[in-house]
Write a protein that binds this DNA or RNA. Structure first.
Lengths: 247, 247
DNA sequence: TATATCTATTTGTATAGTCAAAAGCGGATC
DNA sequence: GATCCGCTTTTGACTATACAAATAGATATA
């Protein structure tokens, strides 16, 4: 028999992860949950405390409990949004869309991503420019099945990463970080020599077992690094200097 | 006025982080803590639950509560121990000590690490070999003030990273991940071409505001990558595939 | 209009207990 | 010795309740 507090926790977690309740939405107050589950307030409180601990919920006296904004989140999840990090570190950031087309998932890609070939996807290529230097090239595949609104999104205001976060806030992600040499195309776009070392971040993102996006971000090795301070026992959200730093 | 459960939590956390209570040590049972702090059992329970949540403590009915083993831990902290990861992925791993000497911290290093020049340190250089291919070169500085036992440690059985973990289990760490090109010395040792891209991990580790070690690990870009799956709402300790993968 | 005060709501912390489940231990039995 | 049984310890889940702290919104006051 599953404990009550766990059932409450999972119910709410599921609704947040599904996107059923979105960041900023109010979640029922303790008193209501007490009635819904016919249990004591302490039990509800324990479930909500766990959600706070995990960073899914924020609570405020008198005001209520709300789905948290996932924006700046957890460790490698931080490696999300180049622009925000750059700007908050006092740099000027802009982006250019280099390519943008609706296409079908190829056989090779389908095998690699473990998805079905022919799925309709949006391919976006985006260049990130920090302090007038090209700092990253972002090659992205967005699955239109999961994010239909992407089809007509020009990504002018917000780069794809940021825009997607507003559409699909809570997700599971797989990250791979590698060092590669710049191929001809990459070198030309980033204005570096062919063969120069580049930091390569690949991220695949799911929501509810459904693949949302696949992205490969390539940084010139001399212009970028990932950094972070980790205190083992700390809450993920209170880490001290989560940042992608310009080197 | 600080809540009681927080005081209990912090007291125990401090003892674990100090190395006062070491992994496997038993911590007082709820009943004893109730007496120590003259509070109710629920309050003690809340403090201990938080410690479990943070991964510092494991509990078992009838047996008691114990300081957890930090071995495989938290996100980028995983990027710790090349050998363990390689072996658990079915690869053969060995290491060679290339250099090993007691020295004083230079002026340049002192500035970079924000520590006092002249401090007595142990410099170790270690080559990691996976499936007979050189996979990483580890250049490490160990501060003998913090780890006096290191002076007479030959690092034959366990490479420095692993040995240190057994000496200083809980610590704060700063990580930087970069892509660099191999310099002449590195290229020769790793048997790659000069200028080839390498994945460079720098980690600086503290215990109690005292610097323990500084290490720079260089991987050939084509032979190594960092990877991990992250579920946003999950406990750090239950991540699904934390690994450094051979590519 | 602006400011101070009161009030009601909601979360935060804590108590003092109950009952349950897991698991180590010793003893009885085979 | 090995196996099973019950006792005891320790953690786990939960209730019902109390009071405190924060604060949004209404009300009264200057």
């Amino acid at each position: 028999m599953e404990p009550i507090y766990l059932r409450i926790f999972k119910d709410i977690e599921a609704r947040i992860l599904n996107g059923d309740w979105r960041p900023g939405d109010r979640i029922p107050k303790e008193h209501d949950l007490v009635k819904d589950y016919s249990c004591s307030r302490m039990t509800v409180s324990k479930a909500l405390a766990t959600l706070v601990e995990r960073g899914l919920v924020v609570r405020k006296r008198k005001t209520g409990s709300f789905v948290a904004s996932p924006q700046i989140e957890r460790t490698v999840m931080d490696i999300q949004d180049i622009g925000t990090e750059a700007v908050s570190a006092g740099h000027e950031h802009r982006h250019e869309i280099l390519a943008h087309k609706v296409d079908a998932l190829s056989q090779t890609e389908a095998v690699q991503l473990r998805w079905s070939a022919g799925a309709e996807v949006l391919r976006v290529q985006c260049l990130h420019i920090v302090d007038n230097k090209p700092t990253a090239i972002e090659r992205r595949i967005i699955f239109l099945d999961a994010v239909p609104l992407a089809r007509s999104e020009p990504f002018l205001d917000a780069p794809p990463a940021k825009w997607l976060l507003s559409q699909v806030p809570w997700s599971k992600a797989k990250h791979v970080i590698r060092a590669v040499s710049a191929d001809a195309a990459t070198a030309r776009i980033l204005r570096i020599e062919r063969g120069e070392p580049c930091l390569n971040l690949i991220r695949q993102t799911w929501q509810n077992e459904r693949i949302v996006t696949y992205v490969e971000i390539t940084h010139p090795g001399d212009r970028f690094q990932f950094a972070g301070i980790f205190h083992p026992a700390e809450k993920a959200s209170s880490r001290q200097h989560p940042h992608e730093a310009l080197s």
